[in-house]
Amino acid sequence: MRMAKVQGWYSTVGKKVIMGITGLLLFSYLVIHLAGNLMVFIPDGGRSMNQYSHFLHQLGPLLWIARILLLAGFIFHIISGVQVVLRNRRARSNRYAMYASKGGPSRLTLASRWMIITGILIFIFVPLHVNMFTLGPYYETVINGEPMRDIYRLVVERFKEPGVVTGYALFMLFLSLHLSHGLWSALQSLGANNRRWMPVLYTLGIVFSVLIAGGFFVLPIYTYFFIPLP
């Protein structure tokens, strides 16, 4: 069964390059996002976190450029991902009765096979998450005589709800699975890999997936048990 002629960035290799670039962009955002969130742990009643959030909102057009870039990255990542999966399904319309991994150098894991599933779950999570916080209730506080949004209060309030905490923790497990294959895979898709670096990149991919998703995982749980409502 022949498919339409595709070239350049529309080819299977090109799509993976797009997925790699947008994946790394989204990952670098996650790193910055987590760094900001870790301010919850600073026991100053949310001063640092609110000031950081205020600083970001003061950036004005820069913030909007970042948001648009991220949204574009998110959309391109999803479109390419769905296209790749649909193509792959067509590439083997008669499935094997029996299929097994041969082990050895194979990187076939639950995470690598479930990228589309964990991806869809993250796609469901992100709008809910933005709706809960960025678009959530606007509390105000005054720090150093300057009125600003009390995002800290909203975060702590939300993370006092057991349902929210459980949901967040669960979604972070999916994120961890997605990153554990996605990180090294993004570099491999961009050709940034060789024999010597392969084991290092693969290990680092897993380490970062645990660190990043782990950070986001611990945060709501810690807040639920140890941080008092302001």
């Binding site: 595709v6 080819s11 041969k102």
Partner: peptide
């Protein structure tokens, strides 16, 4: 590279997801 990748796609092969199972096989 352009022509071989285009032909590979034209033949209806799937896209590589970096599972690495090919190397094992």
């Amino acid at each position: 590279v352009n022509r071989m990748v285009a032909q590979m796609d034209l033949e209806g092969f799937g896209s590589c997801s970096n599972h690495g199972e090919c190397e094992a096989a």
